[in-house]
């Protein structure tokens, strides 16, 4: 059974149609990559799956674990396992990073009928993940994303993914603004989480993210839909020839 099924999805902002009959199926354990020029609708796709209220879905179907996602609120989607690492994470002045992580985890546990995590278990879960991603105690004490560098924000997104352990992880340009070392750290975080029940959708412009992560499929997105699907070798073709041949 597919984890995520998208059929002829159409979405717009205001009068502007962005997703045009977009279709994609993702099975458990698969890693999919979407590449495409700026403005082709990659972030819109991710945001629509996450339930961003700015985007209006005007047609099509979106099923996750056999549930109709389009009827669900963003928090309900998150709590059945949908996660989006944002291209530009929002700053939350006054909201402490550690407390935020705890609140998010408890929300997920409550949705699953479990009781809140205790302080010791919380730290035991947080510490190794934060260390692996190079996130210091000082960062965890600060307000979420406030005053973080671009790279720190990206790593904080990855920490949330590692901490919440969602079944479907969308990473929107997680590689932008990262140096080689940080990129390697982020790739490791993805690889460690690859499991037979978990799937990934990576949005990127660059082949270099795929040096460490080996995807099952690469899709090229143009003007709101997938125009070409291939295996991992498609990235190299793209790097060489550019998007123009798919226009």
């Amino acid at each position: 059974m597919a984890l995520l099924t998208i059929e002829n999805l159409c979405a717009r902002v205001g009068d502007k149609e962005i997703l045009k009959d977009f279709s994609l199926t993702i099975n458990p354990g698969e890693v999919h990559v979407i590449m495409g020029p700026n403005g082709s609708g990659k972030s819109t796709l991710a945001n629509v799956i996450a339930g961003h209220p700015a985007y209006e879905v005007t047609g099509g179907r979106l099923m996750f674990k056999d549930r109709d996602v389009l009827k669900m609120t963003p928090d309900e989607r998150a709590n059945i396992g949908i996660f989006l690492a944002f291209q530009s994470p929002t700053e939350l002045p006054g909201v402490g990073s550690a407390l935020f992580l705890k609140t998010a985890l408890n929300a997920k546990r409550q949705a699953a009928g479990e009781k809140d995590i205790d302080a010791v278990s919380f730290m035991r879960r947080l510490r190794p993940r934060a260390t692996a991603l190079g996130i210091t105690d000082d960062m965890l004490k600060r307000a979420l994303n406030v005053g973080f560098s671009g790279g720190e924000k990206k790593r904080m997104e990855m920490l949330q993914m590692a901490f919440l352990e969602p079944d479907f992880c969308m990473l929107d340009e997680i590689d932008s603004g990262l140096d080689i070392d940080a990129l390697h750290t982020v790739s490791q975080a993805v690889n460690i989480m690859r499991e037979s029940h978990r799937s990934f959708l990576l949005i990127t412009h660059f082949q270099r993210l795929l040096n460490d992560i080996t995807p099952d499929y690469i899709h090229i997105m143009m003007d709101g839909r997938i125009v070409k699907t291939g295996d991992k070798t498609l990235a190299a073709t793209l790097e060489e020839k550019g998007y123009d041949i798919y226009r």
Binding site: H52, V95, A107
Partner: peptide, 27 residues
Amino acid sequence: LDTAALFYLMSRGIAEKTARHILLQAM
């Protein structure tokens, strides 16, 4: 309330009312 901040919190599984309270409390 900042709708982007509200969505960010909800996208991590936090219910709307709780998310709103977190942002108000922060203010």
